[in-house]
Design a binder for these strands. Structure first.
Lengths: 165, 165
DNA sequence: CGCTTCTTTCAGAAATTTGTGAAGTTAAGG
DNA sequence: CCTTAACTTCACAAATTTCTGAAAGAAGCG
């Protein structure tokens, strides 16, 4: 109707999607700015944007981009790369691996297990509460190995469906 | 050393555990009060406490207990039961099933899938970004069935290890 | 080397979230 | 019915979080 080629992205629609996807991430516990930045990167065709581009699309300050990106890099959701011949930086989503990071809660699970072990001791292994903790601990240990296997199955499944890219 | 019978709970140690476990829950995204209340319930021998007991142990107002419990009940982490012959209410953790609720992110996953489907449309199924969304969507669909199967395996595993209770 | 362009850090204003006291509501038990 | 024990709701004060502008810090390029 209005725009020219079909290849021109509907900026409005894309932005709506970015915000609604970011909202999901926020609801799942991610901070707002990291969520918005991540959603923007994910919906860019190149899978990467510069700081300036992010600031413009999301209407946020360079400082906000910087903070968000630091968080995302720390959690391995995004990587930073230097644009050759420029002092610009590009932030990139690791194609298909970002959701692996999402399930890669190894460190998180380990901490839970630590807390639970401490719980079994504090409460006494022979008490009802202690037994409840022990069982929960066993659950997390179970989950831990299951997730690894699940991700292996996913990679097989994915390759079949999408090719090895 | 100090206390009498070995059955007397070390209040100090239990409280430390409650707070440290609650801190993990908070880090995982749960609000502070629900996290503390839940941790307290989980480490009680009966697996249940009254509003007054919770308020006393955690040093919080009845209003705070009320708010926390409402949240926990909504998310099926805790159930409320009326104490017969009293107008007290008891809040109870569903023994071994609370962590099932934890993985029962059915609704959450569905919402993600909805957002992603919208994304494929907004971005265009034939664009690089659209394909990235489609693949992510496939991942969530995969996860969804995997989790169900995983929990079935857990129940078998658990019964072997702890008996059917 | 110094200019210029980009990124980061930091203090603080603004917005949001959190927990409380107090008032309101419900229901048991006389 | 009235009293009273318990839970809930609500408005607000306090604490926390979030984002910005401004200044400082790097790094390419002449």
């Amino acid at each position: 109707m209005t725009e020219s080629a079909s290849s021109a992205r509907d900026t409005e629609a894309v932005s709506r999607f970015v915000e609604s996807f970011a909202a999901q991430l926020v609801e799942a516990g991610m901070q707002r700015m990291p969520a918005r930045v991540f959603a923007a990167l994910l919906s860019s065709d190149e899978g990467s944007m510069t700081s300036a581009e992010l600031g413009e699309q999301l209407r946020i300050s360079p400082a906000a981009v910087s903070g968000a990106v630091r968080y995302l890099a720390q959690t391995h959701m995004v990587s930073r790369e230097r644009e050759p011949g420029s002092r610009r930086e590009r932030y990139r989503v690791h194609g298909n691996q970002w959701y692996e990071a999402l399930t890669n809660r190894e460190a998180v699970i380990k901490r839970w297990e630590g807390a639970l072990r401490e719980g079994v001791t504090s409460l006494g292994a022979d008490t009802p509460a202690g037994r409840r903790m022990a069982e929960t601990l066993a659950f997390f240990e179970f989950i831990e190995t299951e997730i690894v296997e699940m991700m292996e199955r996913w990679r097989v499944h994915r390759e079949k469906k999408f090719g090895q890219e």
